[in-house]
């Protein structure tokens, strides 16, 4: 195990976070605050409570998930894509670090950043709406697992992408719509039965549902199903990473 190597990559990526503090932290916080103002205060005041939770508070876990999903994917994708783009990847490929150590460095940093972001948004939200967290440890566990899984997915996207368009494609056109339709802003009970069934095929539903359960003890699906699904996504992402490692896909010719 090349400890210094993992630390170097992790440190390099975290330094990038601090350097781009505005774009990586401030911008998502501002965006989320806007959601609270619009959906929570303005529109939310016209909407009834959902399972005894005010609408403004109801959307908090969904909004955090929305940001964590898009930010962890985008960040991890960019983190590995950029060295490929500039050519500096040669150094990582010629270094005595295994692919798993490379993943630990890049994905660890992207996940750290996403978790920090989630917690900052949570703190921001508490300024707008009264919050309760029924299961804080589960809340953290969901946050960390989701951040890790989607950072892995982002890493895979960054390896796969060979231009900036592809790099943007999945976060913007797959993850964001899935997050919006996965119960971020509503409970699936509010949907017609057909759409409820369709929504069950949206993986993000399980993440949002589980995360919301850790706050209010309520969810669209049972928490056990949520946990199983997120572990399944993690396993799938790890399998793809293992395949990339075995074949050297897009890294070593």
């Amino acid at each position: 195990m090349n400890f210094y190597g993992v630390r170097a990559i992790y440190g390099f990526e975290m330094a990038r976070t601090w350097r781009t503090l505005f774009q990586s932290v401030v911008a998502p916080v501002v965006t989320t605050s806007l959601y609270f103002v619009v959906f929570g205060a303005a529109i939310g005041s016209q909407i009834d409570e959902i399972d005894g939770v005010s609408y403004g508070a109801f959307i908090v876990p969904g909004l955090i998930m929305l940001m964590v999903l898009t930010q962890s994917t985008t960040n991890a994708a960019f983190g590995i894509y950029f060295p490929k783009f500039t050519g500096t990847i040669y150094e990582v490929l010629s270094a005595p670090v295994s692919f798993y150590e490379v993943v630990m460095g890049y994905v660890g940093a992207a996940a750290t950043k996403a978790v920090m972001l989630g917690l900052i948004i949570l703190a921001t939200a508490s300024l707008f709406v009264p919050l309760q967290i029924a299961h804080p440890l589960w809340m953290l566990a969901f946050l960390i697992l989701t951040a890790t899984t989607f950072s892995l997915i982002g890493f895979i996207i960054g390896i796969w992408a060979d231009n900036f368009e592809k790099l943007q494609f999945v976060p913007l056109l797959v993850i964001t719509p899935l997050a919006f339709l996965g119960g971020t802003f509503y409970s699936i009970d509010m949907l017609p039965p057909v759409w409820q069934t369709v929504t069950l095929f949206n993986p993000v539903l399980y993440l949002v549902s589980g995360f919301r359960w850790s706050f209010y003890g309520i969810g669209d699906v049972s928490v056990a199903v949520s946990v199983l699904m997120i572990l399944l996504f993690l396993a799938l992402a790890l399998a793809v990473v293992a395949w990339i490692f075995r074949t050297g896909y897009r890294l070593r010719s």
């Binding site: 090349n2 400890f3 210094y4 190597g5 630390r7 170097a8 990559i9 440190g11 390099f12 150094e91 990582v92 270094a95 005595p96 670090v97």
Partner: peptide, 9 residues
């Protein structure tokens, strides 16, 4: 310094 760490030193 990054290079040194990456190479395990």
């Amino acid at each position: 310094s990054f290079s040194r760490g990456l190479f395990g030193k």
